[in-house]
Amino acid sequence: MASRSNKFSDIAKLLERSFVGSDSEITGFNVPMYALESEVIFLFQKKYVPQAISGNSKFWIVSEKVFTKDLADQCLKKNTTYILSKDPYEDIIKVLTWWIAQRAHRRGNARKRKSNLSTGVKTHRSSVIGYDTIIGRGTLVSAHAVIGNHVRIGKECVIYPNVTIYDNTIIGDRVIAHAGSVIGSDGFGFHKTKEGYLKIPHVGRVVIGDDVEIGANCCIDRGTVGETKIGHGCKLDNLIQIGHNVVIGPHTVIAAQAGVAGSTRIGDHVTIAGQAGLVGHINIGDRAVIAAQAGVIGSVDENTTVSGYPAREHHVALRREATLKKIIEQYDQKDKV
């Protein structure tokens, strides 16, 4: 027997809150910028209000601290249905935990389809491939690689030994994933309470474009909701961490041991040198350059080179270092006198 669809009113009942607007079927969760009409968004920070207003989602869970009369008017104008949340992060944990259970129930009732391996796919006998996974023509899956359920891998890809690809990941054509990399694991998301930390469930996925190369022992986290995206033509060196909901534009290169925290957006043709660290929720403009070991704590404009910690425009960082050197030399001279 087919399981029934889920409605927004089911979430209201779960949270023991009322909803304002009309009820309808929901199909999932996403970030405000990319959500479809039937996808629910969480609106907990004021800076994402413009994206929610300009976006397509008709179902919002909104923090009471963010909600205003103007926003209520926008909801009415957009015919948006919403629930007000007193404790946003506890609510997101409740809702996403419930959604995972609902999704597992629906999939449990559905017939498990065998994976579809196209002509010329080569798989090592020790590799593991889940159900309802499609792998394109000429792709190589090496020893001890593990590919989850509902995965899509394009043609002429190379999956080297011990690569793990989690459920629902989408990978384009001619992608190379080197040994030991993990694609689609949960992001580092926790809510601090008096009793300790509560895990925030992750229901998103990873989407990787064509002609991407991923070095050895990289970790690319799935979106909390929505997607972590690696644009076509990107090249990632070894030992790189990409956090949940990061979006990387086409033809960006990232050198070894760099780390990008969650929800940061990186433009096209960006260069990130080795051991650079980027905080979350910032924007890096097209063709920007992040120097080695830079600590980036704010957004970077396009065509800009930054270095140092905290990262500044490179010429400013050099001037600062030169000034500091002069001050130290002056003090050394005084000590000698």
Rank of each mutant, 00 (worst) to 15 (best):
I248Q: 00
I248T: 02
I248G: 02
I248Y: 01
I248W: 00
I248V: 14
G249W: 02
G249F: 02
G249I: 03
G249S: 07
G249Q: 03
G249Y: 00
P250G: 11
P250L: 01
P250I: 01
H251G: 02
H251A: 01
H251R: 07
H251S: 08
T252H: 02
T252Y: 03
T252N: 04
T252L: 00
V253Q: 06
V253N: 06
V253A: 13
V253I: 12
V253G: 10
V253H: 06
V253S: 09
I254M: 13
A255R: 01
A256S: 15
A256N: 14
A256G: 15
Q257V: 04
A258K: 01
A258M: 11
A258D: 06
A258Y: 04
A258F: 03
G259E: 14
G259K: 08
G259N: 14
G259A: 11
V260S: 00
V260R: 02
V260H: 01
A261E: 14
A261F: 11
G262V: 08
G262P: 13
G262A: 09
G262H: 08
G262I: 10
S263G: 10
S263N: 13
S263Y: 05
S263F: 06
S263A: 14
S263H: 11
T264N: 04
T264D: 05
T264C: 13
T264R: 02
T264E: 03
T264F: 04
T264G: 06
R265F: 05
R265C: 03
R265E: 15
R265I: 15
R265H: 14
I266H: 02
I266P: 02
G267S: 10
G267A: 12
D268T: 09
D268I: 05
D268Y: 03
H269W: 07
H269L: 12
H269V: 00
H269M: 08
H269S: 10
H269F: 08
V270L: 13
V270P: 12
V270C: 09
V270W: 08
T271I: 13
T271G: 15
T271Y: 05
T271V: 12
T271E: 10
I272A: 05
I272M: 14
I272Q: 03
I272S: 04
A273M: 09
G274C: 08
G274F: 03
G274A: 15
G274E: 07
Q275M: 12
Q275S: 09
A276K: 09
A276G: 15
G277H: 11
G277E: 10
L278A: 09
L278F: 14
L278G: 08
L278Y: 11
L278V: 11
L278T: 11
L278C: 12
L278P: 14
L278N: 07
V279G: 15
V279I: 15
V279A: 08
G280T: 07
G280R: 10
G280W: 08
H281R: 10
H281F: 11
H281K: 10
H281N: 15
H281E: 12
H281G: 05
H281W: 02
I282N: 07
I282L: 14
I282Y: 10
I282P: 14
I282V: 12
I282R: 09
